[in-house]
Amino acid sequence: MTEHVNLSDYERVLREAGVRITRPRKVILEILAERDDHPDAMAIFRRAVRVDASISLSTVYRTMKLLEDKGAIHRHTFEGGPSRFEHADATHHDHLIDIDTGAVIEFTSDRIEELQKEIARKLGYEIVHHRLEIYGRKRK
């Protein structure tokens, strides 16, 4: 379900914001473009310093903030954990969070989408935005 993003998409967002694409930023953007999970800033930092030991955690935070402010990424704060990030243009999906491992599983369900619309309609509302997070643990 997680979609890989073209590196140039992130670079374009930063350039349009008037930000130079430095070597550390390029490494961070490459990590984001190649990711297949919902990394937090520390995970991005750990991956980045393996490529370039001079990258600082503050550079990771600043870059993520810029991308978030420009709408290129979404920040998720799943219950009890650090903020995690994913590309903003991903198709709509919901999240199941494994409370034992912290794994984030993306899923879609037409039944859930229709039920949400039905509930909103019955209560006299039209959905303009929603997010579903389910927290669970693997059954034994």
Rank of each mutant, 00 (worst) to 15 (best):
P24W: 05
K70V: 13
P39Y: 00
I119K: 01
D69R: 07
D94E: 15
L96P: 04
I21V: 15
T63P: 08
L67P: 00
E16K: 11
L57Y: 11
H87R: 15
E79R: 11
G80Y: 05
I44R: 08
V13W: 04
R75N: 07
S56Y: 10
R121C: 00
S54P: 09
T63Q: 02
H38R: 06
V13I: 12
G102I: 09
I105M: 14
I119Q: 02
V13H: 01
R121K: 04
G102K: 05
K117F: 08
T77E: 12
Y10L: 10
A120S: 05
V13S: 02
K122Q: 13
T101R: 03
A17V: 07
Q116C: 05
R111C: 04
A53M: 13
Y10S: 05
F85R: 07
D69Q: 09
R12I: 12
R23V: 08
R25V: 11
I112D: 00
A33Y: 11
E114T: 14
E118T: 15
Y61Q: 06
G71C: 01
E113W: 08
M64D: 00
G71S: 01
R46D: 09
V27C: 01
Y61A: 03
L66D: 03
R47C: 08
D37Y: 08
K117C: 14
R15W: 12
F45R: 07
Y125N: 03
E114N: 11
G81R: 14
S83K: 13
I97C: 05
L14K: 00
E68F: 09
I31C: 02
H95S: 00
R35Y: 03
Y61P: 00
E68N: 11
T63F: 02
L115P: 12
I97A: 06
H74V: 14
R46T: 07
G81N: 08
A53E: 15
F85G: 01
G124Q: 05
I99Y: 12
F85Q: 05
K65A: 09
R75A: 13
D94Q: 15
E86A: 14
R20A: 09
V51K: 06
K65T: 14
M64T: 01
